[in-house]
Design a protein around this nucleic acid. Structure first.
Length: 233
DNA sequence: TCATTAAGTATGC
DNA sequence: GCATACTTAATGA
């Protein structure tokens, strides 16, 4: 089945919001192979050869690293349209992280050789990719900074305030609304789920946020900012 | 209505 | 202050 015919209608606004050039997107997905994954299924695995450049057409996925003790550090949560797997595709090395489907996911995987060919022919694709890589590097830098500098309550507040810069690239249906579970938050900031729950309840008691199942709504942006700054070293 | 999964809590290190 | 283990609640098939 041709991915183009199936997903010709990836809407331009969505690409724009995801900072992906439309021509770049279409060029890439016409050069790759269509695949689907169920929730929890691995798209690629850390320290193993990748499947090339992964264009997510539909669904939600995460990139993360797993430690030997079973704990996980999430780097990004991404919703279609999104591109992952750049590093291993272009440096020829093994995967620096794993990518796992969170929902039913449809992707197009562009093999490394093919991806390089496309980039050489179409500078716009290269530019667009550099942009997504740059964005992810910023996320990594922010996460690294927070891991070394702040206690968990502060880190959590900063994560909620900066969730886009922090690596959650999902669509929000309303302003200041973060669609994420406590479990995922815990894996982002490096703690356990109940700990996140208790901090969030604390924020909610102070009127800073409102907690719903699977989402967090920021009520008092400035108040949360004050909390995020109050414990800065 | 039931299975699944998110969120709340009791307890101990 | 935090993690582990257990309980309760919400959701969607």
């Amino acid at each position: 089945m041709s991915p183009m015919s199936k997903d010709k209608a990836m809407d331009y606004n969505k690409l724009l919001r995801a900072n992906i050039d439309q021509r770049a997107w279409e060029t890439l997905i016409s050069a790759g192979n269509f695949k689907t994954y169920g929730p929890g299924e691995a798209i690629y695995v850390q320290n193993q050869p990748g499947i090339g450049l992964v264009c997510i057409l539909k669904g939600k996925a995460k990139t993360s690293i797993l430690f030997t003790d079973g704990t996980e550090k999430i780097f990004n949560i991404l919703e279609a349209p999104a591109i992952i797997g750049e590093t291993a595709t272009f440096d020829g090395g093994l995967g620096i992280c794993s990518a796992t489907a969170l929902t039913k996911v449809e992707i197009v995987a562009v093999p490394p050789d093919k991806a390089k060919e496309v980039l050489l022919k179409h500078p716009i694709v290269a530019l667009s990719l550099l942009e997504t890589v740059g964005k992810k590097l910023r996320c990594m830098a922010l996460q690294a900074e927070d891991l070394s500098l702040h206690n968990i309550s502060t880190r959590l507040a900063r994560m909620i305030l900066n969730f886009e810069q922090y690596g959650v690239f999902t669509r929000q249906d309303e302003e200041h609304c973060l669609q994420i579970t406590h479990e995922e938050l815990a894996s982002f900031v490096g703690t356990t789920r109940p700990n996140v729950t208790s901090f969030l309840n604390d924020f909610a008691r102070k009127g800073l946020i409102k907690i719903k199942r699977g989402k967090i709504i920021i009520l008092d942006y400035n108040g949360l900012c004050r909390h995020a700054d109050s414990e800065l070293i």
